[in-house]
Simulated scan of single mutants.
Amino acid sequence: MLFPFPLDSQIELFILDNLSRFAVPFFFVASGYLFGNKIINTRESVGYFKRYVIKIFKIYVCWLIFYTIYAVLVIYLSDSNVLQKLMQYFDEFTVMNLFYFGKGTSGYQLWFLTSLIWSIIILFIFYRLKKINVLLTLSFILNILGLFGQSYSLFFNISISTRDALFFGLFIQC
């Protein structure tokens, strides 16, 4: 048992929900630190950048294929309206869903990989332009807005998805 008392109020659930949100931000902080350290201390920063993004993209595609096969098997074994369910499932396969938001499949938890890829690309562009301070300010504002689309939607709700590179990953990468 995590807490010695029952979690029956909204405030207790709110606290628990926010305390458990440290894994993905830590992943972005560690990735951003290690990436930044490498491109600053490497002469071949463009080559490292390309290899890094391609490696993460390969991981994403492999797991995307895995989750797609898994979902198709689950739908196939459901025995009711298989064709209709498959059509509904593959309707979610849009370019934005797959390559920006990282959703549209049963592997919706892979959103952090696409977010990392886009954050690294944006970070590298601003690094090359020597405008990291501008990126830090802009990404901080977007992150504050993004928090109202996720954790703090209880206070103010934003109707767009903010679990992506611009609202979540970019500030933490900087």
Results as ranks from 00 to 15, higher is better:
P6K: 04
Q88C: 15
K50E: 00
F112Y: 15
L136M: 13
N97D: 01
S78G: 01
F14K: 09
Y70F: 12
S78L: 01
Y127L: 11
L86H: 10
N143T: 09
L166K: 09
G104Y: 03
A71V: 07
I158Y: 00
P6V: 02
S119E: 08
L83D: 06
F22I: 14
L170H: 05
I160E: 00
S115K: 09
G104N: 12
T162V: 00
G102F: 03
L129C: 10
E12L: 12
I132Y: 11
C174I: 15
K38D: 02
P25N: 02
V82W: 06
F26N: 06
I122Y: 05
I54Y: 13
N81T: 05
Y60C: 02
L16G: 04
V134E: 13
F156L: 09
F57D: 02
S161L: 11
F49Q: 02
N133R: 15
D8W: 07
L34V: 08
L77P: 08
K130Q: 10
L136S: 15
P6L: 01
S106I: 09
G169F: 12
I144H: 05
N81E: 12
D164Q: 04
N143E: 03
Q10C: 01
L116F: 08
I40V: 13
S31H: 07
V82M: 10
L123Q: 07
Q10F: 07
Q150G: 08
F171R: 08
I172M: 13
Y67F: 05
V74K: 12
D91W: 05
Q173L: 14
N133D: 15
I75L: 01
M87E: 08
C174D: 06
I75V: 08
I141N: 07
K103S: 00
W118I: 00
L2Y: 06
T94M: 10
K58V: 07
K55V: 05
N97K: 06
L138G: 11
T105P: 09
F28L: 03
I132L: 15
Y76D: 01
F126I: 02
S115R: 11
L7G: 06
F90I: 12
K55Y: 09
S9D: 10
E44W: 03
I69M: 03
D17N: 12
V72G: 02
G169E: 05
V24T: 15
Y52M: 01
G104H: 09
R163W: 13
I75R: 02
Y100L: 04
L19C: 05
